[in-house]
Design a binder for these strands. Structure first.
Lengths: 211, 211
DNA sequence: GTTAAATGAATGAACATTCATTCATAAAAA
DNA sequence: TTTTTATGAATGAATGTTCATTCATTTAAC
């Protein structure tokens, strides 16, 4: 009984996510979702208050679960670098394994007036706290710079992970997303700069090239 | 005569951007835009084919102009680091100076089925090419690492700039966005890692903590 | 047989777009 | 110069369509 009820709830939610991913939330209709879930239009209102509520439930249940798995992944790392790597790898993994979720997540979180504002804020805080912890540990270990502005570091990390996912989505998921994890981690840790380079050598070197 | 015509076109476009920024594209109505622009509903159709066309014109005219100014800013830098700094600073500057544009831009570019797909792709390419050039120059100068995967470096840079802007927008533009440019540039060049740190010291340090 | 779940046609509100009409200005005629 | 005619920008009420949501009825479960 409860099983079956839950089954229909999930079926509708999954169908909605697929339709939202394909068409965008506002262009999706209840009829389309009902057809995709193979239920009648009215049935949807037995499980969800209204259309907005479907999106809110998506963030409250589905996405939040995914984010909780990020915590587990981080815990398995020993030093800060390993933890950051685990976080990024898990993030890419989960999003690669559920492309519809990834599309809806990326789209809706980048809106300004977000329907699921509270849920999104909560998840965002979860993620930001994970990063804080990791950076703190890295600084204690000595593996990470002490002169970091934490607020910015968080954006720096989230932003680049997000963009890697977006690019993959816009390429229709045609390559392996998870393989980006290690090169990205390397960039985050070491940056694009060359250590051996001394600031004031460059202008003359450039001039040499012109000869 | 032509002045006046152009004036009304701009007035409608600006009004639309404001309404889109406040409510999102699909929740905005022609009537709201007309009211904001102080014209009749029908007048809008003398200047734009339909609602979608307003968004397309926004990207075709307004946003594209902004991106062209990025090129000028980059040219003014001498070495690669200066150029990357100029790009980021200009980007933050322009978006800070036109918050409505920033909101619409950030929102629409993160959609999957984008109404202004062609325009967005064109701008994206412009930006990516700028970054390529800068990195190439940095590698020639010796100021940037040679072992960089260019496709990823682009995401790394765009993504973190984007996220810094998004965070600022979600904080209602309550602080100075441009002041983020230099710290962000530093992170992109040097990363979060500590140079002095030797990889294999850390595990024992961590274990010590457990005692 | 009673209760709960599911259905899908019906409802009505919202909204993009159209178009007949107005009106200020410009060109032509006097 | 004054009067008449033509133009086309601007208007906003009317239209037609698209949905979200409801609810009377049917079907299934126990």
């Amino acid at each position: 009984m409860k099983e079956k009820k839950n089954d229909k709830y999930s079926r509708i939610l999954e169908a909605a996510i697929k339709v939202f991913a394909d068409q965008g939330f506002f262009q999706s209709t209840i009829s389309q979702i009902a057809r995709e879930a193979e239920v009648a239009d009215g049935t949807i209102y037995l499980y969800f208050k209204n259309k907005d509520d479907i999106l809110i439930q998506f963030f409250r249940n589905k996405t939040k679960q995914v984010f909780e798995r990020f915590e587990e992944a981080v815990e398995k790392g020993r030093d800060a670098k390993e933890k950051l790597g685990n976080l990024i790898r898990k993030h890419l993994e989960e999003f690669q394994n559920d492309k519809n979720m990834a599309v809806v997540y990326q789209t809706e979180t980048h809106q300004i007036n977000r329907l699921a504002e509270d849920q999104i804020k909560e998840m965002s805080k979860m993620y930001l706290d994970l990063i804080s912890q990791i950076i703190d540990q890295g600084q204690e270990e000595g593996s990470m710079r002490k002169d970091l502005y934490m607020g910015l570091v968080k954006r720096f990390i989230i932003g680049s992970v997000d963009e890697v996912i977006n690019t993959w989505l816009h390429a229709n998921g045609k390559y392996d997303l998870v393989s980006m994890a290690d090169p990205l981690l390397d960039l985050l840790i070491r940056g694009v700069g060359n250590l051996e380079h001394k600031e004031n050598e460059s202008p003359s070197q450039v001039r040499q090239k012109e000869n």
